[in-house]
Structure formats: structure tokens, C-alpha cells
Write a protein that binds this DNA or RNA. Structure first.
Lengths: 341, 341
DNA sequence: TGCCTTTGAGAATTCGTATTCACAGCGTTT
DNA sequence: AAACGCTGTGAATACGAATTCTCAAAGGCA
């Protein structure tokens, strides 16, 4: 059977309330008694029961992370894995733990949400929405449930959100390629409708405006395989681009394979810039230029914010925070690499 | 304020006990009443409070995953990310959630363990120990706390554990290279003392025995960068290997870069087999042969086992389960690829 | 000395649910 | 018709900790 405050109280010859007070570090406890109780607690290896505590305190000490992906959609998702890794890293040492959950299908989402929110399993939520789900977000908002969105809440500025400036990120990437001397800079994105992808296309277009006569935009499924197929097609077309901004590092590696298969040299004949700055970037001899999304600062900001909301502390900043991203230039976007080297 | 069973009871003109019974699907409730209560629950969007429930039931519905890594050691760890991804995948739909925690330092481990176990935050634990921590494991064992170890419990067969047969895996990989006609097959592992690495070295040696005069074993830090450095050194040595078994895909990619830099062709002049079968394997033109650790079946087995232990259901199998691994042959280990193609 | 304030600690209550216990109402049996 | 299940429901209690309420003892002041 488990040791409770009741037991400690009995052994130390005090009331259960006093044990609780000692635990809370209450000043109003006679030092003699405090020490006696503390000794008994240590001796019996007492640890308060979180379950009882959270019932009483209305706090579980858990932060939920809900990921919306189809079954199996998590494996090999670099964004997701960085995200969880960073969150755990950030939370370690703090009085919160991470509760991870997945909503696999549209229909299971409600269930997951209900289980997490209405049932008060977690104190707050971090949401990563690949597509805008106003309805859901507003439900949370109405329930006054503490949450922070990583992403773009679209038409709502009531919602606490932290985001990369995807538009700007793509603009920078594109501009960089233009500056490097590439003439026909294209964009290879993910499936249309995905917010990240759409946002970045806007940034691409913004940079291109005026500098180049046409917009070269393609879509592909995620992953290096799909991207390679698409790239084979793109690079075979008569007026192929001489540089590509690619939605993520994995897709970029697919493009690299396609280029290699077709005998195109990177960066001389094809410039590349991708996003995420994962460790994949070093797997290319010349290095893959990539825009770092600064996930750790994204995480730090969101978690800080969430903890403030949960603990009712004042929130200094505005509701929406943009985390700047940073272009990490490597070899794949330096057109005259050999001359320079 | 939150809606409780009490409220539902009042509205439906029954006692709170009855509401609880309806919720539990108790047969002994008059259909008329059952429907009336159910209707009120739906109407008011009632959801039972997990906190109260877990206090009463002594079950939280949480499974803990404790990862032992230094700060920042999670980012870009493919094993970890596959593992969590698979666990979440597996748990979604089941009445358990995942609670993720990290023990960054030796000293913080006790704290994490205490917080998780003694405080009964989770119903059971999945442990991934990179090194054997008998002391810790035995404490858990003595507390009769439900847990399953992914890995090797070394000198204890009392402990529930699920593991790859790392020895066999490495043996197969090595054998495969020997069969392919390579003459000097070496092994590039991680830092000495890491169980995975040590186990695989044993397997390597077992396969080599008799087939080759000497054992060619090197150690390097994890990650493609460190591996590349080491590989440059290895491949420059006078009696360099003509094939390498490499501890994981990432390190293997480092080896690939080194080989490429030195003008060695893969697989003709250097054969490669790695472990994990991540999506990195497709990033090599010829494909990287890799031993799949079958993480999803690893996860399925451990979670099943853990759930059985938690729920006191009979456990059919023995305490230790070995999940077979499978060599995925790709181009990097087919010595005469061009002849074959 | 007597009254009031302060201090410290125990008793009682609360959080929301599950479950045991007790019992009212009804039907069956002899 | 009386004694005896049986069934469905409400009342009461437990889970373990935090907090409020209560009160006794000690101390201060007039």
C-alpha cells in the first residue's frame, strides 16, 4: 500500500494538515515540528500523489501537444521530431511535463480534443495545425482553455500564436538566389492548401516581382521520393529553372538526386535553397543552403507564453509573435563556387 | 465553472451515483432513466474529470517514456523520433496517452523517476536505456512498478524487456558483405560503452570469425560529421577496409561523403551496410543497405506487454522478447552493381 | 489580573468520481 | 397473507492532498 500524508502524520504525531504545510514550506510551522515531519517524510521516502494533488489544485502539470497527422504520418517528419525534442528539452527541469497526442483523422480529432480539454487532462495545449481549423480554435477560445498555436491563425488576432514568418523566409531565400546570379528561380512546394507551403509561395512571388518575367511554381507530395520524381519532370522541361527554392530539406535531397541523375551540377547548373536547416544539409558535399526556422526559439516562445497563460501571469507581448528565421548559406546556392573556392 | 456529475444528477433528477452508473454503462439502470441522464449529459456536453477519475481509480491512463540524453541530445536522434512517432501512432485510439520526459543528467534522473513513479503520474513506463542502469531498474522492480525496457537488461531476467537482437543484426549485416565478395570488412561503431554499439561489435566479430584474418573495428562519435572525419582517417590507412558495417544511417552518410571526397566509389570500392533503415537510405543514388530494426513492431510488443502488466492480464510470452530485424539490401552492398545492372 | 491579539496546529471540508451499503418497492412462493 | 428474494436507486464513503475554519495556548497591554 502507498504511503500518504495521513501515514506520515500518524508517525510524526501531527495532523495531516501539518504535513501538508511542511510540504508547502509554510512558515507558520514550528521548526521543531517541521524538522520532525521532514525527517519522517525522507525516512519513508514519501512523495505526494500527483493525482490527488491535481484534483485539489485543478492543475495537472501537463502540457499537451496535439499533432494532426494521418496514421503513420509522424515517422520521418523532421519538423515534428525537432519540435517534440525541443519541447522536452525546454520542459525538463520545469514543473511541467509533455503529454503527446495525435489526432489521426478528422473525426478522431473531436475525441482527442474532448479527452484532453473537457476532461482536463492537461493544463494547456500547444497546437500545430497544418491547415487552418478556425472552428476548433474558436471552441478552445470560447472555453477559455489555455493554448498557443504554432502556425497561422488566419483571420483571428484573438488567438495566441507563435509563427515563423514563412512569407519573409521564402522571400529571403528567393532573393538570395537572385542575388547569387541565378536567372530563372523556381519554387517547389508541397501539396497546395498546406499553409506553410502557401505562405512561402507568397514570399517567393514577392521576391520575384519585377526581377523575373514569370513565376515558376510546382507542387509535389512531401518526402524525397515524390520530390525526385517531380524534379525529374521539372528539370527535363524546355525552360527549366536554374535554381529552386524547395519546401524542405528532404524534398531538396530528392531534387539533388534528380539533378545528379540528369548530370546537372549543383550549384553551377542548379542552385538550391531549402527550409528547416536539418542535419541533412551536411549530407550534400557542397552543403545545402537552408533557412533555419529556429525551432528552439519557436518552442521557447510558445512554452513561455503558454505557461504565463496557465499561471495567469501578465503577458507582455502581443498575442502574435513572429520568430525570425535565418538563412544558412552553404554551397548549394553559390553559383560560382569553383571560382570562389 | 465546470459541469460535474452532481450537476447532471440535479438536472436529470437522479442521484450522482446513477449518473456514474449510466456513464459506466451499468446494466442495472432503468432504460428510461438511462436515456434521460444520457440526454442531459449530451445536452450539457458533459465529460468526466480525468483527475478525479484517476484519483479514484488509481489509474491515470498515461504511459511514461523516459529518455536519457544530455540536453539537446534529442534533436536529430532518429531512433528517438521514430520511437515516439511509433508509440503515439500505436497509442492513438487506445485508452492511453503518452507522457514524455527526459532525464538530462545522472542526478536529474532520480528526480524524474520520483516525480513519475512515486508520485504516480503514470501507470507504467517504457524505458530506453542506452547504458545499463541496474540499480535504477531494480528499484523499479522492487516497487513492483509496471515497466518495460527497450534494450538489454544485462544480468537480470526478471525484467520485462523487448529488444532487437543487435548481435544477430550485425552478424547478418557483416555476413551479407562477406557473401557479396568483400574481403576486408570493418566495423564503425559509436562511442565504446554504448550497449547497442557493443552488442553489434560482438555480432560483427561472430560473423568475421574464420572468414577474415583480422578484426577491423573503429569508434566514432554519433552523427555524420564525426563519422566523416573518422572515415577520412580510416580510408586513408594503408590496409583500409573495402567494406564497412556502420552503426547507423547518419554515420553512414558521413562515410559516404568521406568516400566521395577521396574518390572511392560505392559500392565498387567500398561496400556499406548501416542500421535503422531510415528514409536517409534513399538519399544515396544507389541506395544504402540498412538493417531495419523494426521499430514499429518493437513498439507494438512493448506497449502490448506494458498494457498487460498494468491491467494485470496474463502475459503469455517470456519476459524477454527479441524482435527480429531485417536486412534491406540496396545498392551500397552489391559489389558488382554495374555488372549486375 | 483580566482582556485582547497573535500564533500554531488540529478538525472539517473540498475537489469529482466510483463503489459499497442500505433500503424501498414489487413480485413470487407456500 | 406473510415471508422472502430481487431490482433499481439514493445515501454515504473513499481516494489523497490543500485549505479554511476553529480553537487552545501564549503573549502583550492596560
Amino acid at each position: 500500500m502507498r504511503i500518504t500524508q495521513q501515514d506520515i502524520a500518524r508517525i510524526a504525531q501531527v495532523s495531516q494538515a501539518t504535513v501538508s504545510r511542511v510540504l508547502a514550506g509554510d512558515e507558520k510551522v514550528e521548526p521543531t515540528i517541521r524538522d520532525r515531519v521532514a525527517a519522517v517524510m525522507v525516512q519513508h521516502n514519501y512523495q505526494p500523489d500527483v493525482r490527488a494533488r491535481s484534483l485539489r489544485n485543478r492543475r495537472t502539470g501537463l502540457i499537451g501537444l496535439v499533432v494532426n497527422r494521418p496514421v503513420g504520418g509522424l515517422t520521418n517528419d523532421p519538423f515534428f521530431s525537432s519540435l517534440t525534442a525541443e519541447i522536452i528539452d525546454y520542459l525538463s527541469g520545469k514543473p511541467y511535463h509533455l503529454c503527446l497526442d495525435m489526432a489521426t483523422s478528422e473525426s478522431s480529432q473531436s475525441a482527442v480534443y474532448d479527452e484532453m480539454l473537457r476532461s482536463r487532462r492537461v493544463d494547456g495545449l500547444i497546437l500545430v495545425e497544418s491547415q487552418a481549423r478556425d472552428e476548433r480554435l474558436h471552441r478552445l477560445q470560447q472555453d477559455k482553455f489555455p493554448f498557443v498555436l504554432i502556425g497561422n491563425p488566419l483571420n483571428s488576432d484573438e488567438i495566441h500564436s507563435v509563427d515563423n514568418d514563412n512569407v519573409r523566409a521564402a522571400e529571403i531565400a528567393t532573393q538570395h538566389l537572385l542575388d547569387a546570379g541565378y536567372r530563372r528561380v523556381g519554387f517547389l512546394g508541397g501539396p497546395a492548401g498546406i499553409t506553410v507551403s502557401d505562405d512561402r509561395i507568397v514570399g517567393y512571388q514577392r521576391a520575384i516581382r519585377g526581377k523575373q518575367s514569370d513565376h515558376l511554381i510546382w507542387h509535389s507530395q512531401f518526402g524525397s521520393d515524390a520530390a525526385r520524381e517531380k524534379a525529374l519532370e521539372i528539370l527535363a522541361s524546355p525552360n527549366r529553372p536554374d535554381a529552386l527554392v524547395v519546401l524542405d530539406d528532404f524534398m531538396a535531397m530528392g531534387v539533388v538526386l534528380a539533378a545528379r541523375a540528369m548530370g546537372l551540377r549543383i550549384p553551377q547548373q542548379l542552385g538550391l535553397v531549402a527550409f528547416n536547416d536539418t542535419n541533412l544539409c551536411d549530407l550534400l558535399e557542397c552543403g545545402l543552403s537552408s533557412v533555419s526556422l529556429n525551432i528552439s526559439s519557436l518552442v521557447r516562445t510558445s512554452c513561455d507564453r503558454l505557461m504565463k497563460i496557465i499561471e495567469n501571469r501578465p503577458i507582455g507581448e502581443s498575442r502574435r509573435t513572429i520568430v525570425p528565421c535565418e538563412l544558412k548559406v552553404r554551397g548549394s546556392s553559390i553559383r560560382d563556387l569553383e571560382l570562389a573556392g
